[in-house]
Amino acid sequence: MKAMKVHVRYFASLREALGAQQAIEMPADSTLGALRDALAASSALHGELLAFFPPVTGG
């Protein structure tokens, strides 16, 4: 199956915990849920941190 490289960006507290971004290879027809599961399983991540955006606090 054809693969695609997904670039994931992190912000604020997640950026400090995980780095600004990472790239992960996924099957071309992957769902967002599958990406989340792949990130959770990645050794570069701590499985409890799955959100890409923390709640926003501007203004």
């Binding site: 912000f11 507290s13 926003v56 501007g58 203004g59």
Partner: peptide, 13 residues
């Protein structure tokens, strides 16, 4: 302002 506070991607430290 109400919209911005909860929906615009800003983060305060």
């Amino acid at each position: 302002m109400d919209y911005l506070k909860t929906q615009a991607p800003f983060w305060k430290k």
